[in-house]
Amino acid sequence: MEVSGDFARLVLEQASSAHPAARMARELGLLGNYGTLGIFFLMSQSGEVFIDEDDGKLRPAHADEHEFAHVQAARRYPELRHLMPDRPLSASTCQLCAGSAEAATGDGRNRFCCPACNTRGWTI
C-alpha cells in the first residue's frame, strides 16, 4: 500500500528532534509517527511499520502495532487519513474511551492511547 505522494515532504518536515530514533527515521527516509517511553513507531512510504525499542535496532511491527501506527498517522497527518481502518457495520463504540481513542487515568488528569480499541474509537 502506497502511503502518500506527500510522504517525502512529511519525512523532511519532521521536527528536528535530538532523539536517536527521530534522527534514524530521517536518515532512513521513514516517518516517525508515534513515540512513547522506550518505543518509537516508524513508517515507510509503502506503509510498512517498524519499531525501535530505544536500542537503535528496527524490527517489523506486529499486526496490532501496525494498525496502531496507521491509526496514529491518520490522526496526526491529514494527508494520511486514508490509513484509518474502515469501521465495520458490526463495530461498537469503545466502552473504555467512549469513542475518543484516548483513555484517562482514574483521576482524569492523564490521558493515553486507548488499549481496548487500539486507538480506533471502536471495537468489533
Rank of each mutant, 00 (worst) to 15 (best):
M1H: 02
E2N: 09
V3N: 08
V3S: 11
V3I: 01
S4L: 02
S4W: 13
L10V: 05
V11I: 04
L12I: 11
S16E: 13
H19K: 06
H19A: 07
R23E: 06
M24G: 02
A25V: 01
E27I: 06
L30Q: 02
N33F: 09
N33V: 15
L37G: 14
F41T: 04
F41R: 08
F41S: 09
F41L: 10
L42F: 02
E48P: 05
V49Y: 03
F50Y: 06
I51A: 10
E53C: 11
G56L: 05
L58K: 01
P60K: 01
D64Y: 13
H70W: 13
H70F: 12
A73E: 00
A73W: 01
R75D: 01
R75A: 09
R75K: 11
Y77F: 01
E79V: 06
E79N: 05
E79K: 04
L80A: 05
R81V: 15
H82V: 02
M84W: 02
D86R: 09
P88H: 01
S90Y: 07
S92Y: 05
C94M: 03
Q95K: 14
L96I: 09
G99L: 04
E102Y: 15
G106E: 05
G106I: 02
N110Q: 10
R111P: 09
R111I: 12
F112A: 10
C117T: 01
N118Y: 02
T123Y: 07
